[in-house]
């Protein structure tokens, strides 16, 4: 198991946000956490790379509790992509992508070839983009850079928090498709947060439905489509109404 949640609770100022969360994610799987805003999906994600500490219970990454891991080492083994992208505006695209390898003190020649490789991988021509700054790129291009940055040190695990949520629908579908191809090529373990059920079906090998801080359904896309849980039904019905 790459990630395992064991009876995890999380409260903020005595307000419970997550309760009794238990699930595990195997090597090469893509778990999509689906749910409404405020249901605890992002909190779950931030527990995995120890940006948050559970109030009770334990999360294991590669068999070791996140509270035993050195948080810096843990995070450098986990790629992290967020909706706002969070590129460093004062650094070129090249240096943004190379930030983790630089922190890991790779030799500069190795960083450079890795950055070129990654920009190609996410469909950006290094000759054209490497020396540009984030503000010179479109939203879709910026998120491609965000994905490249997360993959830079070849982490076995990738956490993605609504990475395509702020993009226009055409760019979003384009990036979803490319990410799926990328995922098949690289075989990373991915935890992907979204509130878009279409995205969950496109990308997930498992769909975990969250409601009010609990995991109420965990199934493959095929089984999820037949789920009788009311919240799953609610999500599935939005999908039908989307395509009349």
């Amino acid at each position: 198991m790459v990630v395992e949640f064991r009876h995890v609770y999380y409260s903020l100022e005595r307000r419970p946000l997550l309760s009794d969360l238990s699930f595990s994610i195997g090597q090469g799987e893509t778990l999509v956490l689906l749910g409404r805003s405020g249901c605890g999906k992002t909190t779950t994600l931030r527990l995995i790379n120890h940006l948050l500490t559970p109030t009770a219970g334990e999360i294991q990454v590669e068999g070791v509790s996140t509270q035993t891991w050195n948080p810096i080492h843990l995070r450098r083994r986990i790629g992290y992509v967020i909706q706002e992208v969070g590129l460093f505006p004062h650094l070129t695209i090249e240096r943004n992508v190379g930030v983790v390898p630089a922190l890991e003190k790779w030799p500069s020649q190795r960083i450079k070839s890795r950055v070129d490789e990654l920009l190609h991988l996410v469909g950006l021509d290094p000759a054209q983009f490497a020396r540009r700054y984030p503000h010179e790129l479109s939203g879709g291009q910026r998120q491609r850079v965000g994905v490249a940055r997360a993959l830079a040190a070849d982490p076995p695990l990738l956490l993605m928090d609504e990475p395509f949520g702020a993009l226009d629908p055409i760019t979003r579908v384009e990036l979803q498709r490319e990410f799926k191809r990328l995922q098949q090529q690289l075989g990373k373990t991915v935890v992907f947060v979204t509130h878009d059920i279409g995205e969950a079906f496109t990308l997930g090998s498992q769909i975990g439905l969250m409601q009010a801080g609990q995991l109420v359904e965990l199934a493959t896309p095929q089984d999820f489509a037949r789920s009788q849980h009311p919240e799953a039904q609610a999500f599935l019905s939005t999908r039908k109404s989307e395509y009349p």
Binding site: I72, R75, Y80, E84, G86, F88, P89, V99, L103
Partner: peptide, 18 residues
């Protein structure tokens, strides 16, 4: 500084000093 930038930096494994 944009909180998303700080979140990204921390999530990528920067120490507070870095």
């Amino acid at each position: 500084v944009d909180p998303a930038i700080r979140e990204a930096g921390r999530g990528l494994g920067m120490t507070d000093r870095q």
